[in-house]
Design a protein around this nucleic acid. Sequence first.
RNA 1: GGGCCAAUAGCUCAGUAGGUAGAGCAACGCCCUUUUAAGGCGUGGGUCGUUGGUUCGAACCCAACUUGGCUCACCA
Length: 523
Amino acid sequence: MEQQNSVHWADIYADKIIREKGDKELYTCASGITPSGTVHIGNFREIISVDLVVKALRQKGKNVRFIYSWDDYDVFRKVPKNMPEPQLLETYLRKPITLVPDTTKRADNYARGNELDVEEKLPIVGVYPEYLYQAQRYRSSLYAEQMKKALELKPQIISVLNQYRAEPLDDSWWPIAVFSSFTDKDNTTILSWDGQYGVTYRDNDLNKEETIDLRTTPYAKLHWRVDWPMRWVYEGVDFEPAGKDHHSKGGSFDTSRQIVEFFGGHAPVSFQYDFISIKGRGGKISSSSGEVVSLGDVLEVYTPELTRFLFASTRPNTEFAISFDLDVLKLYEDYDNCERRYFGLLPCNEKKLAMEKRVYELSQVGDVPKTPGYQIPFRHLCNLLQINSGDVDAVIASLSDVKEDQIERLRTRCRCAWTWITTFAPEDFRFSVATADSEKVALDEEGLKAVRALCSKVASWDGKDEKDLSQLIYDAAAEAGVENTALFTATYMALIGKEKGPKLAGFMNTIGKERVLAVLSKY
RNA sequence: GGGCCAAUAGCUCAGUAGGUAGAGCAACGCCCUUUUAAGGCGUGGGUCGUUGGUUCGAACCCAACUUGGCUCACCA
């Protein structure tokens, strides 16, 4: 009957998990990635998707374990562009990424550096998985029995994999791989298995042979297509989505769902999430820093709630772009509208309301706030920040109706707005307001007349009423005998050094009479 | 070759359980006799890729097709 209430995909999947896996004491939801480079926002889609489903299951009263697997016993295949000391890293190719040094000096090793980036950011968006480190697990021989089992299952596994392979695997293939104990590299060939725990391999670089014991060796691991289903059983995974590369027919999910049966388990409930693209960062980051956009990068421009909102309001199986361009303005507006509907401040039909409410709830980092945030259009906020040279506290102080419980949220929004306007906004949106100490701008005769007339008009303004000010502006143009356009242009030049700007009356009102006069009176 | 996704207003896209087609931008108009980039209100604009089918009713479900994109058939 719960299904009746489920309108959001996260709830629908939670229902599906309960339906297909039965009533359980504990549901295990899993996600994971190989930290072989910067973990990007596309990888985050999987994490947040699982988090949303976890949240949904918990709200249905279920006990849930959310695990995140760092597949960090993988091979270092190539040196990413723009890593420090590439020639040093080069010497570590073919070793496990946990044995590669972190040349950025963030962490003990290369994999750990990439992991830390994520682990430090996830709490900001309210995501708290239990991290499982596969290198540590394999190296402590935790999976010895499972590897033995896989060796026993070799013929069945090969027959599954061969259904889709262009070049069939033959008997010389083994479900495990071995790193050389001499070099740590994976350039090895398995020669034989003794039917128990003994595996003999040859180091192809040194042409040396060695026999290892799966119960004690740190060097053996399962191949991915066997490793994944093994861990489904080991952890009892009930739900794990995956990218489209895994979910294609013949992809790793497809073979894993068959192989997992050999291990005595069943495939988890899953769905395919699509990739995400990036929009509006062209030329803004130096091309030398690469194209990768991380969760941290997104959080520079989107508040934690907005970041969750991007994913909670989008169906996971469709591609979408994370924008750093003008779409940012619209997305903040969308979020604010969603919030207003949640709090009943914006009319909305019933069907849409149910969805909007759920999206809003799922977008929150912690508990759902009792009151809406301070809703100020993003673009207006950008202008206020520019008027105040990025001084967040000054901007908040200038907004007299901000309530106590809105300040923190607003502060975060201000920081995002400032990053956006200074880093990603089109040139047209940017300005800085002159001060009494600024250099004067060269104006022609007409412009000077206009500015002087405006200055004396503004002096008689009460400093509050925008309508009055608007009238004064036109009066000034008439008095100076210049075209309105000439006055606007000259005034913008004097105030912000550009020919155009925000609507003048409101703009001057925001800047404040005193400061406007301080600038204009110099002319 | 297999699989998945998309095609809706001039543009970018919503439409997440079949019930009279939506938003933002752009355009135009108004709030404001007045030319400028913040706010608000309003107007115009779509045979929902094509053809069939199911249904009282289809953008939505089914089948086929057209066009575009991604992905697997290496590794993980």
